[in-house]
Amino acid sequence: MTSLEERPQSATTELIDEELAADLAGAALALARRYHAGATLWVLSPRWEPHAHHVAVEFVHPVIMGKRALPAFALTGQDIVAEARLAVRAGDVVLAVAAADEPVARDVLRRAPAWGAETFWIGFGDRPDPGSADHVLWVDSADPMVPSTGRFVLMYHLLWELTHVCFEHPGLLTPAAEDCTDEVCVTCRDEGRLAEVTTPPGEPFGTAWVRTADGEEEVDVTLLGDVAAGDLVLVHAGTALTRLEEVS
């Protein structure tokens, strides 16, 4: 028969294996910590928009009485990159429900670190490149029907359920102080921070304004030659060192 033949999926089908369960646990704690610090969740699913709306309504209007209502929005416009750029503030969270080759999701997620956002990616089939998102929650199946069979719904239901469990552990909602005070701290050391050009230089050899996780700043771009608004660059000590080309 053809691919329309019903695929058997018995009770023994393992929907969440050990590795994915660990990924979900880490993602839930990270999301709870961001929410605890005042984050808003921004959700996009260019190909399966209803999933973006479902995630948003989960957090905004919890199915369990007494759980906190949390800020979450679905991004569904014609230009989701521009919409996200305006909407996302430092400390926010961006969640994509999309395949690894979805161009809009890829573009938003590669820019999000320059906006100061932590990134989550739910999808199926081929995995995104390592480092494409802070948290990758993946259904390792190439079945094109995965988005319609409740696998994503289960994933974000569990993410919501586990995130709310974390709120019952207030002592763990603030990352350990050691992470950021030591002089060898890797996360805070100024070694090539991601930045998005907001205003290119007005004159040759002028400076450009860029946006980083820390806010807007003026940087020297003479090493790069022409830069345009929206370019992603690595900044170190007030200088843009390299431009990140789009990966095709």
Binding site: Q9, T12, E14, A21, A22, L24, G26, L172
Partner: peptide
């Protein structure tokens, strides 16, 4: 680390248990 590790282990096993419940209910 010990504290967060305990919570993360609980979360992971909870995810597995809920997913198994879902699979059984679906079947």
């Amino acid at each position: 680390e010990t504290d967060a590790t305990g919570l993360l282990a609980d979360l992971a096993s909870s995810a597995r248990r809920k997913a198994a419940e879902s699979a059984a209910l679906q079947a």
